[in-house]
Amino acid sequence: MPSQTTRVAFMCMQNAGRSQISTAFAERERERRGLEDEVEIVTGGTHPADHVHEIVVEAMDEEGFDLAGRSPQAITTDELESCDYVATMGCSTLELDTSADVDVRDWALADPDGQDIDRVREIRDEIEEQVKMVPGQR
C-alpha cells in the first residue's frame, strides 16, 4: 500500500538565504533516506529576492551544494496551507490558518545576509540540525 506524501515547506521573506539552505539540506536528507516518493519539499518567500545571497552560495558550496543556479520563488498562503509542516525562518509575514492542520514552526534563525562567512557557517550548521528533526525526514 503506497504511503501518503508528506508536504514540507521552508519559507522566509526573500527565499534567498535560510529557506534555500533548509531546502538543500532537506533534499539531501530525503535522498539519503530514500524518501523521494514520500516527501515533497516546497520553498519560497513572501517578497523574493532577485538571487540567492552570494555569502549563502559560498557557505553551501563548502558543503558540496551548488545554490548558484537557484532562484528565489514566491510562496502563497494557499501553498503553505496545503503542507503538513511549514518551517518559517524567523521572518514570516504570512498568517496561516492553523485549522488547516499544518504544523507551523518558527525556527527563529538569524539572517545570513550581510553576515561574515563564519557567522553564515554557524547559521548553516544550525539549519542542518533543524532539518534533521523535520517530520517526514526521520
Rank of each mutant, 00 (worst) to 15 (best):
R138M: 11
T88R: 04
I21Q: 12
V104A: 12
T77P: 06
T98K: 09
E27Y: 12
E122S: 02
M89P: 00
D61F: 15
R28Q: 08
V39L: 05
P2L: 10
L96R: 00
V52K: 01
F10H: 00
V8H: 10
A9I: 13
W107I: 08
D50Y: 13
D118I: 03
G136H: 03
G69C: 05
H47E: 13
V134I: 15
K132A: 13
A9M: 10
E31F: 06
Q115I: 11
T5E: 14
H53Y: 14
A100S: 14
E95H: 10
Q20G: 02
T93V: 15
E62V: 08
S92V: 05
R138A: 11
E79L: 06
T88P: 00
A16T: 02
T46D: 06
L96P: 00
R33I: 03
E27N: 14
F25Y: 08
F65P: 08
V120K: 01
R138D: 09
T23W: 12
G44L: 01
V52F: 05
E36Q: 14
I55H: 08
P48T: 02
A9L: 07
V120H: 01
L109A: 03
I127R: 06
R119C: 06
G69H: 06
T43Y: 13
T98L: 15
E27L: 13
P135E: 06
M11D: 04
D61C: 13
V8I: 04
S19M: 03
H53I: 05
